[in-house]
Design a protein around this nucleic acid. Sequence first.
DNA 1: AATTTCATACAGTTTAAACTGTACGTTATT
DNA 2: AATAACGTACAGTTTAAACTGTATGAAATT
Lengths: 174, 174
Amino acid sequence: MAPNSQFLEELHTKVIHEFSKTLEMFALSPGEARLFVTLYLNGEPMTLDEMSKALGKSKTAMSNGIKSLVDLNLVERVWKKGVRKDLYQADENLYRKFMTSYIQKWLDAAQQQEHSLKQIESTLEHEVDKIREPSEIEEIEELYNRLGDMIRFHRLITKKFSEMKPASPEASVK
Amino acid sequence: MAPNSQFLEELHTKVIHEFSKTLEMFALSPGEARLFVTLYLNGEPMTLDEMSKALGKSKTAMSNGIKSLVDLNLVERVWKKGVRKDLYQADENLYRKFMTSYIQKWLDAAQQQEHSLKQIESTLEHEVDKIREPSEIEEIEELYNRLGDMIRFHRLITKKFSEMKPASPEASVK
DNA sequence: AATTTCATACAGTTTAAACTGTACGTTATT
DNA sequence: AATAACGTACAGTTTAAACTGTATGAAATT
């Protein structure tokens, strides 16, 4: 299954290099991206040792990388009769997996951050009465307005990315 | 304009810290994100020296950071009568600016990468005839199919992000 | 039960990014 | 014209991430 001619070898490397760049835009590290592409091109599930050999990196690096990819739900651990080593396989459906994973990451982060900002906002609301200095009051108002803008910003992001979710799998029977 | 009480100072720092996390998701480095938020909270344009003082970083760091932000079209250099130093101001419209900038980055990258992959694809098409080894032919077919999938992937991304563009400014009169 | 094979935790190293301080050229002020 | 103030290029340093090799514990094989 591994490339067995100079020509194919080079092409393989080139594809890995190029496609990795795209996957890095989905917030994968270069290492994770290369690992995914290797698995994806290979089609068949691979062991840590095979990945290690294919990428010329240590087994530990593969173990760490795979852990990230599995956490992101982009790679699956599969079982094969008689094979003792762990086997991992890249999901075939690039678009659905990456979009879903990516959008979810955005939504989680936006929600978390919005919450943090709201907390600051409420602190501000509670503490503002204690302030007497007029110049400070004005400045607090300023900050308060900005906080409102930021929170609205998060709401818009959440809305936009929610709309972006791919149709659910059962909806797109083809 | 700078915070003048312990309480406000802390709150300011907290807001910068939290909101920066969100902006980092738009592919800003932590430094760039903090710089933008500082500018944004300040409202009034700032000089490099003021930013340097506000963030406790060197002037060179500010100069570099601002350069990135200006390139991303998130910060504008403004002119003020009688002020000799360069003045920079964060754009008010968070959502439009960040979305536009971010989507454009995606579209540019997706297009560039799709082109690279297509080039590899055509190399493959031209060279495949020279191959005689049956096992290699099969493998080339495999790689060819995957390449097609990847290219399709880029097209889908381009489509999705194009749809995501905020309405043009003149369209959203409010 | 002893041995081998595996994945991963851990400590140390390498590599790349962020940052600093000085030096330089340019523009404004005297 | 000379001096001062400014932004940034550059070289060196610090810091954080990625990676390696060994050690360890768990699971399978003998």
